[in-house]
Amino acid sequence: MKKNQTLENAIAAIPSGAVVMVGGFGNPGTPFSLINELVRQGQTDLTLIKNDANEPGHGLSRLIENGQVRKLITTHIGLNKGVIDLMNQGVLEVEFHPQGMLAEKIRTAGAGSFGFLTDIGIDSEITRPEDLLEWQGQTYKVEMALPADYALIHAAQADGLGNLLYQGSAINFSPLMAMAANHVIVETPDLGVPGRFKPEQVHTPGAFVDSVVPLESLTSDYGILEHHVRR
């Protein structure tokens, strides 16, 4: 069961109009190589699901700046003034969710369920009357599961069966998205043979992964952002 793919072939599976989840919270976990290839291939009319829009000129922001994105489902774009401007101009549709609700909607889809009940945001403007459910004397908000066609994931390490390990704060949404998308594409700078991981330490089991793209090295995209270094 060989899942190795070239960067070009792995991304060529994605058609225009697809709903694509992208792992990462800020830089850590953002699959910059997969995103940059999607920019190069130029698929359009995409709906993207990611915690944030990265920062101008980097990662997800490149797809948005390149006009390939119809809608962004996200939690926070405060570090990307350019994307806020595109939203304000009506060029980009943006749907905001509370961060843990976005995670849980994705987790729920990944668990094969359809929704869950919550009280988060229940008396805020993000809740519409039709989202409310009365049940045994209590009022809840219904949050529906959020699946996707594709997920783009960065793993610190992988094996040829698609078993994945993440590192640092790069875990974030990745293991959830890897379960919630129908077709999961992973990039990793460290692809090894099956048996390299202690079985109980695997974060994402290979059953969820469709293709693994080995990266020769990590480009400067993955490095330290100087403007976030405290002097």
Binding site: G100, A103, E104, S169, F173, S174, P175, I224, R230
Partner: peptide, 28 residues
């Protein structure tokens, strides 16, 4: 400094003894 370890605002952080790392569903 680890480029794969930031706080929610993007600042580079370290970990104390006994720290744990987890996904966003667990975090929330």
């Amino acid at each position: 400094m680890d480029p794969f370890l930031i706080d929610a605002a993007g600042a580079y952080v370290s970990l104390r003894e006994g720290a744990s790392l987890f996904d966003s569903a667990v975090s929330f």
